Computed example of a mutant assay.
Amino acid sequence: MAERPAAAPGSRGRKIKYINLNQLRSFFAVAEHRSFTRAARSLNVGQPTITTQVRALEERYGVELFQRLPGKIALSETGAALLAIVRPLFELEAQAVTLMEARGGAVVGTLRVGSVGPFFVMKLLAAVQGAHPTLTISLKTSNSEEILREVLDGKLDVAVVGDVGPDSRLSAVPLQRQSIVVFVGRRHRWSRRQQIDLRELHGQPMVMREQGSRTREALERVLAKAKIKPRIVMEVPREAVREAVAEGLGIGILSEAELTPDPRFKALRIADSEAATEAFAICLQSRRSIRSIAAFMDIATQVSTKR
């Protein structure tokens, strides 16, 4: 008669409970996409299957995981708590799949990249794609604050952002330092100049990036130190800054990397200021060994050492 395996310490007399992983995977997909339809598409199954799986999970444990609202869904308090627990589980599953799918050393799968703008990241992505042509890349752009938050939340794998402070959760590689310049519309009285002094911005109407922009934060630190106060007339996203300046609504700021030819603008160097931002490639330290993330960060390190 075969021996029964010994019970784990502390488990004698207790019934081990298991959760249905298919139901949990359906919940995770809906929570990530905030949509039953998009979740079904991501898992390549029919929407009724997803709906049934999530409902069965809720009924089994007598909880509400989603609030079904008109035209949308939202995580309940229990659903949000469960999402925080299961996200690492499915990240580990993704690592396992990546490991098993790697063929002949190839890096496969999809790398979710965030960036403060295409100007900062495209050369790096070209190098990554050239070295690993089997890797698919998806790119999201926003301000540094939002991109950093999504990396920390696990919604993005890697990112290129502005200045980041010390954070033990992150692996960071410095990429490049970029001076900050101002730009004006062609009808502005400064449009024939090549540079200005910092003090000339005092009292001037300025169109600023939204809060969370590292470019804005870097310039504001310099202005505050010099006790210079421009008049902020608008706060808008990057592309809207360009359009507002073109319409003569104020003076804009950008980094050198964002300087692209446009007949509507004139860029001006700030002669007596060292206002600048530095771009960093970042990822979660705990995910640094994932093949696709490691490939990106290794190439970022190569780029950094060539500066």
Rank of each mutant, 00 (worst) to 15 (best):
F119R: 06
R231A: 07
M297A: 04
E200A: 07
A74W: 05
D153H: 04
P5L: 00
T260A: 09
R4D: 02
R87C: 10
Y61W: 10
R307T: 02
R14M: 06
R288G: 08
N44D: 13
V151S: 00
A294G: 14
L254M: 11
F120R: 04
V184S: 08
Q23Y: 00
V207R: 08
I290C: 13
L83H: 07
R186N: 10
F280Q: 02
T78D: 15
S138F: 08
R14E: 15
Q67E: 05
D163F: 13
R103V: 03
A106M: 12
L254V: 07
L198R: 13
P9G: 11
G105S: 06
L92W: 09
Q194D: 03
L75I: 14
T215A: 08
T305G: 13
E220K: 07
S26Y: 07
S191A: 10
G130V: 02
I251A: 09
D167C: 03
Q95P: 00
A172L: 09
E220D: 01
R287F: 09
R103P: 12
S304T: 09
A271P: 08
P263A: 13
A257N: 12
G154D: 15
S142W: 07
G250Y: 02
L75N: 06
F280S: 04
V245L: 05
D262A: 05
S168F: 14
S304E: 11
R199C: 02
T136I: 01
Q178G: 08
P133L: 08
H202L: 00
S35Y: 00
A81F: 09
M122A: 09
M234G: 08
I19H: 02
Q176D: 02
A2W: 11
A257P: 05
A6Y: 06
R291S: 12
L268I: 01
R269P: 01
A8F: 07
G105C: 00
L124I: 10
V173D: 03
I137T: 07
W190N: 08
V184H: 00
L175C: 09
L92H: 12
I16W: 01
L124R: 02
D262L: 04
S142R: 02
R41D: 00
R41V: 15
V245S: 13
G46K: 14
E3G: 15
G130Q: 09
H132P: 02
R34V: 10
V86F: 10
E220P: 00
A281K: 03
T215S: 12
E220Q: 14
R291W: 04
P230C: 04
F36L: 14
R287C: 09
S213E: 07
